[in-house]
């Protein structure tokens, strides 16, 4: 059954994630961007309190917004850096700014851990997403992409262009540890505009903010040029 009734690509990805991944919380509700971002932290706290199974995924959407790291939020220019009309939410994980909108889908893997290496968590998330995208005809690799915003070793890439980014947060409370590994996947939309808005925001923060739109692609654009959906 369709999750949203309006986007077959997103619905099929969600269906695949539910089928192959850990127990899924499909969270497509509307809400304020910061509250939507904070949903990951609430689940992490619930896991640390022993109220949830030890591994779950949250599949979620958000209104258009910039999502900045806490390090960016500490910069003196942060309060005035938002592009006009675009709210800014702050996330727990590190890295730099990304953008959420109706063409992005966020996938958060929340796990109870015992001192696991960070790389292993990233690989679990990237592998889950690669397996969920493969039936759609999208072959994903993990790689750093020069010129991409919020670049990292565990980007999701198609044909050397970034279609999604990943970041993580680890918390310990009273001897229990839990991890959040999350991804933002650009399924559709204008990546040139995304890059321009992220660059504008980071320049307003006093950061270089020089990114290359050619380093990014949406799943839909990448698939129309190189792949066909099953």
């Amino acid at each position: 059954m369709s999750q949203s009734g309006c986007d077959p690509l997103r619905d099929r990805l969600i269906d695949n994630l539910r089928r192959i991944g850990p127990p899924a919380l499909v969270d497509l509700a509307d809400g304020e961007p910061q509250s939507r971002v904070d949903g990951d932290g609430r689940l992490l706290e619930a896991m640390l309190a022993g109220e949830l199974p030890p591994r779950l995924q949250r599949i979620w959407t958000n209104r258009p917004c910039i999502v900045a790291s806490r390090a960016q939020a500490r910069l003196p220019a942060f309060a005035g850096a938002a592009p006009p009309g675009l709210p800014v939410a702050i996330r727990l994980s590190a890295g730099s700014a990304v953008i959420h909108h109706q063409g992005t889908l966020q996938i958060s893997l929340i796990e109870s851990i015992e001192g696991a290496a960070i790389e292993a968590g990233y690989r679990r998330l990237v592998t889950l997403l690669a397996r969920a995208l493969a039936p759609l005809g999208v072959k994903v690799a993990e790689a750093s992409i020069a010129g991409a915003y919020c670049d990292g070793r565990f980007n999701l890439c198609v044909a050397d262009r970034k279609i999604g980014g990943t970041a993580a947060f680890l918390r310990t409370r009273r001897g229990r540890s839990a991890s959040l590994f999350h991804a933002c996947v650009t399924l559709a939309g204008d990546v040139d505009r995304d890059v321009a808005l992220v660059s504008q925001f980071e320049r307003a923060l006093g950061q270089p903010g020089r990114y290359n739109a050619a380093a990014h692609a949406s799943v839909r654009a990448a698939s129309s040029t190189e792949f066909e959906f099953a």
Partner: peptide
């Protein structure tokens, strides 16, 4: 005891130090 005193950053990951 138990307070978060610092944030450590590794590979786009934040780890709280307690």
């Amino acid at each position: 005891a138990g307070a978060i005193v610092a944030e450590l950053m590794i590979e786009k990951s934040t780890i709280e130090l307690i």
